[in-house]
Design a protein around this nucleic acid. Structure first.
Lengths: 107, 107
DNA sequence: CAGGATCCCACACGATACTG
DNA sequence: CAGTATCGTGTGGGATCCTG
């Protein structure tokens, strides 16, 4: 629940460490409207490999931003969803996204 | 003004690429209230080396987020400040910071 | 279906010294 | 004061194959 973070001198640094990395932002973003299965995430986050998906999901989970729910079925089913803490990030990821869209079209 | 960005599939990705990196967030943040000189930045962004500071400032400048202003004096004087585009990021960095503070004290 | 295991590498970042 | 220049390294991420 905390120790991917190396040492946060300031809160800005801390926050960026927690949602940094190549895919964390996009994963949180696609989970904003509800839970998704592993395979669905794999398709939603274009370009990600199973390895990176698994790894990133683990980090997000141990960081308390998402929840992993396993259904004991055959075939296996696993769903991921945002925690309350994770949801608190959505508004600002949304802002970043708007800013990004504006910038992209401005170029 | 654009081509540090490799390929942005989506705006979230694009935005994260532009303010990703170990120091960009903090540099933008300390510049929020006005311009700072190179040496002041070096002290404000704790732990950064001259190399990384120079490198990061160049990236931010070529990305159109900050402006570099050189005064032709002896001794040399260089000031950095946010562009309008850079300033647009401050509100949401501020949000992240609040979130980070809350999280840090929660642990 | 949802991953684990390996091997590999570029590049982001660091340390140190030097300069117009 | 405001940077360059060099050299070195850790690890984030990629490719590929395997499995309960």
């Amino acid at each position: 629940m905390k120790k991917n973070i190396k040492r946060a001198y300031c809160a800005v640094d801390y926050a960026f460490q927690r949602i940094g990395g190549k895919y964390k932002g996009r994963i949180l973003w696609v989970l904003r409207e509800g839970c998704l299965r592993y395979g669905e995430l794999n398709r939603a986050v274009v370009g990600i490999t199973p390895k990176m998906l698994t790894q990133t999901l683990k980090e997000l989970e141990s960081d308390g931003l998402i929840v992993r729910k396993v259904y004991l079925e055959v075939p296996p089913k696993v769903e991921y969803s945002l925690t309350d803490t994770g949801m608190e990030l959505i508004p600002f990821i949304s802002q970043m996204r708007s800013w990004g869209e504006k910038q992209m079209s401005a170029n």
